[in-house]
Amino acid sequence: MEPSIFSSFLHFINTDSLPDTLDQDYMALQHLMVAADRYGLDRLVLIGEDRLCRSIDVQTVATTLALAEQHQRELLKNACLGFMVSRDVLGAVAKTDGFKHLLMTCPSIMADILDKVASVMKQ
């Protein structure tokens, strides 16, 4: 765990709140959520998941989806899939390095993406 993530982790344990610096650091928030999951801090996982859901964009959605898939976070996974198809940004997302990483680390996620696209097209 990186020192800055450990510091945020301790801050949460001591104050039951996240440091203000995490509002601007999406990757740090992802790492903090992974640490919270690893050490069983469910409240921190939920807070991190909520913040990540509200901060999804074209550049972060693929890495966030990989995180959600690897840590079985269904709310976050559904938020990512919904973002990809409801905002018609899948083409832009597919061009990111994060998407390439997603396909290499979680190839089965393509079935979920295609299912989501198909369900939107039926409407």
Rank of each mutant, 00 (worst) to 15 (best):
S4G: 01
I5A: 05
S7G: 13
S7H: 11
S8V: 13
S8T: 03
F9A: 00
L10F: 12
L10W: 09
I13E: 07
N14W: 09
N14F: 06
S17E: 13
L18W: 05
L18N: 13
P19Y: 09
D20H: 11
T21A: 07
Q24V: 13
Y26N: 14
Q30M: 15
L32P: 03
L32Y: 04
D37Q: 13
D37N: 11
D37A: 14
R38Q: 14
R38V: 12
D42Y: 03
R43K: 14
I47D: 00
R51L: 15
L52P: 00
R54E: 15
R54H: 08
R54W: 03
V58A: 02
Q59N: 10
Q59C: 08
Q59H: 03
T60V: 08
V61L: 04
T64R: 04
L65F: 08
A66C: 12
L67D: 04
E69G: 03
Q70R: 13
H71Y: 12
H71P: 01
L75K: 15
L81W: 02
F83Q: 00
V85L: 07
S86H: 09
R87Y: 15
R87C: 02
D88T: 04
V89A: 07
G91V: 11
G91S: 08
A94G: 09
A94W: 06
K95S: 02
G98S: 10
F99H: 07
K100T: 15
H101M: 12
H101P: 02
L103N: 03
L103I: 11
M104I: 11
T105Q: 08
P107M: 12
S108Y: 10
D112C: 04
L114N: 13
A118H: 10
A118Y: 12
S119C: 09
M121Q: 15
K122G: 08
Q123R: 15
Q123I: 12
